[in-house]
Amino acid sequence: MSLSKSVAPVVAANADTPLRTKVLRRIRSRPTTRGAVILLGVFVLLAVLAPLIAPQNPHDLASLSVMDNRLEPGSRGMTGITYWLGTDAQGRDMLSAILYGLRTSLLVGLLSSAGALAIGIAAGLFAAQFGGAVDAAIMRVVDFMLGFPSILIALVLLASIGRGVDKVIIAIILVQWAQYARLMRAAALVERRKEYIEAAVNFGLPTPHIMLAHLLPNSVGSVLVVTTINIAGAITLEATLSFLGVGVPVTQPSLGLLIANGFEFLLSGEYWIAAFPGIALVLLIMSLNLVGDRLRRSFNVRT
């Protein structure tokens, strides 16, 4: 019984069903995955609507008061506002901070993954298509990037071009593109050895055409399905950089920075400063990973 079922996805993925239907079927098939998709949708919605639904603008220093700092969840502040999830050391409403933080974290995750994906796919494609010296050069740069400490990249960027969410995104792109490139190259190499590409080459089709019209669409799938997981990776990386003090600006905290700030208060009993953003972050990453894992297994891609 187990045998037949486990074979099913492989067979299904190779059948001629339209991609969208396949994905949707995969997702609907499992309650956990369905739950993760719904949760992810809620997170995205909250992030998009944050400025409309947050009780306070946590990025605006004028609306914060340090006299309201570290209040327990449910406390009422001096201006009459109720802090349902408490406040942090600057008197930020945690609920608002989490909504805005979600926005920052998701933005960083999406943009940096998109950037890394674009660079990685291009690099991998070139390496696979041209081989030889081009391949060796690109792959050695990949080796190089994978061995390079990400905190050093972040610090150098901070020192040379200043702080900002955009700078963190650049740092994460620099760290992550190498993984995509490696994956893309492997997939494209397999594809390139297939007969139809050889036929196209023998037929004398121009190389750019072969790369863009055949190689790219047929090998990009395996890279795309891990994107969800890499978005989660990017969000984690941003949180870690913020934890190390080289992440987003302190006045625009992401979920990671909120947790990092809250660590100082765990022992003194002000658990809510680290706990609530922590829960939000872990749920966000979990849901991304669950969806990503499902996608990956549906297409039987191994990383």
Binding site: A232, T236, A239, T240, I259, G278, L281, I285
Partner: peptide, 9 residues
């Protein structure tokens, strides 16, 4: 879950 928990947290 094991993959999702940030190391510092």
């Amino acid at each position: 879950l094991g993959f999702s928990l940030p190391s510092f947290w």
